[in-house]
Design a protein around this nucleic acid. Structure first.
Lengths: 221, 221
DNA sequence: GCCCACTATTTTGTATACAATAATAAAAGT
DNA sequence: ACTTTTATTATTGTATACAAAATAGTGGGC
């Protein structure tokens, strides 16, 4: 089991509030809840068989992370962005991802290499099987291995946070099996760039990958 | 009044939970609460004349932002880092700040320039007056103007978050008036680099500034 | 005198209750 | 028929209550 930073993701016992938070993150990332949608405390409470208190705690934390946004007067909503805002978020993500790729390329070791390869193998498998949900998960896992390869949990955390925010938008772009396979191919090019251990190549490789990703996300907008 | 993104920092009415959150951020940034210190819900509640509910909400949000960390079994603590962790955080911050400086240098306009100049003037004033607390605030404001100059609120938000995390550590390094003046001078060099409108110069200028800042923070560790 | 077990107290996490405010529906006036 | 005002409902923010868990304290056994 890989090292875990400061949340208890290895601990087996989760509080109700944490369970709800995780579940919501999962659903939002998978695009099951759409941007702009309102989240009602009371309904969530009964849906999760809990009281409003832990629900509020989860919503509050997700709001602090930018996944949710508070409404003008009341209620919280799944963050929804204009094209311009989306471009700004992707620009920020672009910078983070590029920095991660650069640092990772400088610190590659055997473990990191094999983890990245393994994650990519899983992406290919899911893509060829045409399993969209599996690919979404595998894709996240793939990027996570790169974050981990930086050896810097804080860079990783930041990158992950942006991934969560953009999850619903990136999810939309995968429409058919062809999209999945194309994405997996793009991964392979990225891996080559990172494994070159040249920081410039790694960084610009990731920038290319992110630009591509953004262009596709914009199309569905 | 400058434009505000998605939180209600212009709205006059704050909920109790928000007031508490702000107050705690303020105290932590100023170094009034030290890393490793435990925050007791009940005491905070009576200190702020409120119930535990809004206190918990504030603590929960601060935890989500990484300013606080949950204890092993119970309680939340002001985030405390080993030298290595601190180095990792500063590395991440280093990347963000450099990216901000680069983007800002490419998008400078008259407004941004004058805001940066004005913020720096205030830093100089506070430094020469030897007013440590005023300098701390002015210093944060100065960096915020650079973030704003990127035109990207999400980059700004990310950078601000790291500033909060490292607040207690950076605060310690300002011991006497001499330190303040030196810091203000360092700002001036940074401004020149950013105003050169050459992205490489701006970026490496910020990297130099951050490295310097980190070295001083380490000394007090 | 020291260590272990058991009890008591503190502290947290969740549930429920209540008051204030915004959204919605209804009714009256033009 | 349409707008404006009033009343009702729904939803939020905060407070209080309660149960579970963890720490501290106490006593007994060796």
């Amino acid at each position: 089991m890989p090292t875990v930073v400061q949340n208890g993701s290895t601990t087996s016992k989760l509080s109700t509030a944490q369970r709800i938070e995780r579940a919501l993150i999962e659903e939002i990332s998978a695009g099951e809840l759409s941007p702009g949608q309102r989240l009602d405390e009371t309904r969530l409470a009964e849906r999760f068989g809990a009281s409003r208190t832990p629900v509020r705690e989860a919503l509050s934390r997700l709001t602090a992370q930018g996944v949710l946004v508070p409404g003008e007067k009341r209620g919280v909503f799944i963050a929804e962005y204009t094209r311009e805002e989306l471009a700004q978020i992707f620009e920020a993500m672009h910078e983070i991802e590029a920095a991660c790729a650069r640092i990772a390329s400088q610190r590659l070791n055997l473990l990191a290499r094999s983890e990245i390869e393994a994650a990519q193998a899983e992406c290919v498998r899911a893509a060829e099987a045409g399993d969209r949900n599996a690919y979404l998960r595998a894709n996240e896992a793939f990027h996570e291995t790169i974050y981990r390869a930086t050896g810097n949990p804080y860079m990783a955390e930041m990158a992950t946070e942006f991934r969560r925010r953009t999850g619903p938008f990136r999810a939309k772009k995968f429409r058919d099996t062809e999209d999945l396979i194309e994405s997996a191919k793009s991964h392979q090019a990225l891996i080559d760039d990172i494994f070159s251990e040249d920081s410039g190549t790694a960084s610009s490789g990731m920038r290319a990958h992110m630009t591509e990703s953004f262009m596709q996300a914009l199309k569905a907008y």
